[in-house]
Nucleic acid binder design. Structure first.
Lengths: 259, 259
DNA sequence: CATGAAAATGTAATTATTTGCAAGTTTGGA
DNA sequence: TCCAAACTTGCAAATAATTACATTTTCATG
């Protein structure tokens, strides 16, 4: 065949479109369509399923079920405004496996991550975000815990001593912390003093510490430093960042991941 | 046949659509339509029936009546019994004054009370209800605290040791506790075991203990007793209750208020 | 430009699931 | 009450998934 072979990721992307257009697919149908072996088709479907993009069935796969109307609205709005957040979330979700305990902090990026891991089994998700706490749909084998604390103004996040104490009393495999700025000195900053304690507490009580920030946040300091970039295991941002910026970040941080 | 056979899951989905379009189906009809044996058709119907999507009959299946099957949404439930709940809430709100600390437990009645006191100043409201926590609008001088804890299934309420510990660590001037039943022996009951701890903790940590229940709940016991009516300072119900019932309640309780 | 490590792919053996068939049993209407 | 149709159960064949492993491709680096 003289057809241009796709890269695995590109092929999976097209596969997802194919599945979303039709309602479901057969494994053989995919193998034939993309000129790959059934083994590879299975691996692709498994990967898409792991990302929660489709639902794997015996003999093929089906389109993923749509979320509730409210959630879809929220998510569409988020996608329109910040498509890179979605990419960051999908990349972040790949770091979580079945059975993990996960800290999800407050904010839209954090909710996107929570959505992206919601297809996993036996998760324990701990959040201080009331929107995530009330809207997230999880598998029956999962547990969702809320930190408690004081609602900050009219926002949807919980802060204060009670929240910090809760987080200090538990331990998570991984923490995802959204921030407002990461400067070239490696200062990881947020714009609000109230949130400092809870974010620090989550970082402290997690084995793996992950900072998430879209490229617009890179290179700017903000009001409060919650940690140094070296203190976190990795930073996930999007590929809107320049090569130069990336080089500078690598000097002050550990693993820098572009989604 | 050159037709591509469906995957089992996809076939079941189409089968469900087929059954929903027609009112009912015969087994042979399905076997013929989907080119499968009657044994497989039976297995598919059994699976759909197990999911509650259809109702199995001798020789086939029929559409499921999904009126009661689906869980009613929070907002929809909010509208049920609205007038009574509204009156109870307004009466309950009269017991709260500026600067009070108030326990609001989970449920629609409790949310109605929260709304009814939201015009007051310098309140501290403590709730284990995620809907109240995220939706309630308060004056800037007020504080809203969330207990934290585990989200019970897909409900909007927090339960468990963490929630109870939080409540045990603070003290409120008044607690409003919604219940599922108050019988003639003075047993104040709820229908769910999980909520027992948090409701008891709120009662324990409050100076004034108020039980709220619309007249439909009066005279019935439920699964768990959280306290005796004598333990509470007052019970607020609506005037749908009979004179006889009121007399019986007064024997086993303290102040009985009709809203 | 060579080269070695990591990733991707295909193949084959093994295991698990699905399917159809046929035995005996139950059901529901005449 | 009787009997044909529908159901249940056990089982073997067909189909798909999983696992292990060999081969190829990709890509950063000396």
């Amino acid at each position: 065949m003289s057809e241009t072979p796709y890269t695995p990721v590109e092929r999976q992307r097209r596969m997802l479109e194919y599945i979303n257009q039709n309602r479901s697919v057969h494994l053989q149908e995919l193998a034939l369509f993309f000129h790959i072996s059934e083994a590879t088709a299975r691996r692709d479907l498994d990967e898409l399923s792991r990302q929660g993009a489709i639902i794997r069935t015996h003999g093929g796969a089906m389109r993923a079920e749509k979320s509730t109307a409210y959630e879809t609205l929220y998510q569409e709005r988020m996608n329109q405004q910040q498509p890179e957040k979605e990419r960051i979330a999908i990349r972040a979700a790949q770091m979580v496996k079945n059975g993990d305990t996960v800290f999800i902090d407050a904010g839209t990026t954090a909710f996107a991550i929570a959505k992206a891991i919601s297809h996993l089994e036996r998760l324990t998700i701990i959040t201080n975000d009331l929107f995530t706490a009330s809207q997230l749909q999880l598998k029956p084998t999962c547990t969702l815990m809320v930190t408690g604390g004081m609602r900050r103004g009219a926002s949807q996040e919980l802060v204060g001593a009670a929240a910090e104490e809760f987080v200090g009393a538990v331990h998570a495999d991984i923490a995802f912390i959204g921030v407002d700025g990461v400067d070239w000195m490696g200062n990881v900053c947020i714009a609000n003093f109230d949130e400092m304690g809870i974010k620090r507490a989550m970082l402290h009580s997690a084995t793996q510490k992950v900072i998430v920030a879209d490229h617009g946040k890179i290179g700017h300091a903000a009001l409060v430093r919650i940690c140094y970039l070296k203190d976190a295991d990795c930073l996930i941002t999007d590929d809107g960042i320049s090569t130069d910026s990336l080089r500078k970040l690598k000097k002050v941080g550990n693993d820098i991941i572009l989604a």
